[in-house]
Amino acid sequence: MTETKDKLPLVLLVEDNETIRGAFVILLEESGYRVRAAATGAEALSVAVESQPDLILMDLGLPDLGGLEVTRRLKADPRTSDSVIVALTGRALETDQQACFDAGCAGYLAKPVDTQMLLKTIPEYLGTENAK
């Protein structure tokens, strides 16, 4: 990448499990993204307001606020409403995909996410797949 460090897309990773968070931070940083991480819904809200990420990967099973509730609040807040939010969760029988879209998610990925697929999809969500 030729951009300066500041221009790299910023991804906020919201995931309550520390080990999984660590894996995704490595994956995203090594793939050329700036990464912030949050372990709870409350943390996600404050980090998002402070850093205004381009993309938010949102685990739906958070210990405090549910990921969908966090998504609704971020979408309702003009400071964060531009961030693209993609939900990460278990398989289809558990969470209604429609509920994800209704809350304001741009997409939905089943865990464990295929990392190659994720890296291919992120530019599409960011609308930068042609910018490279």
Binding site: N17, I20, A23, F24, L27, P112, D114, Q116
Partner: peptide, 20 residues
Amino acid sequence: LRTPLTAIVTYGEVLRDGLL
């Protein structure tokens, strides 16, 4: 059980794809 397995799979893919 899914949580640690998710971590195993994700770290595995990070390693496999030469990110480290």
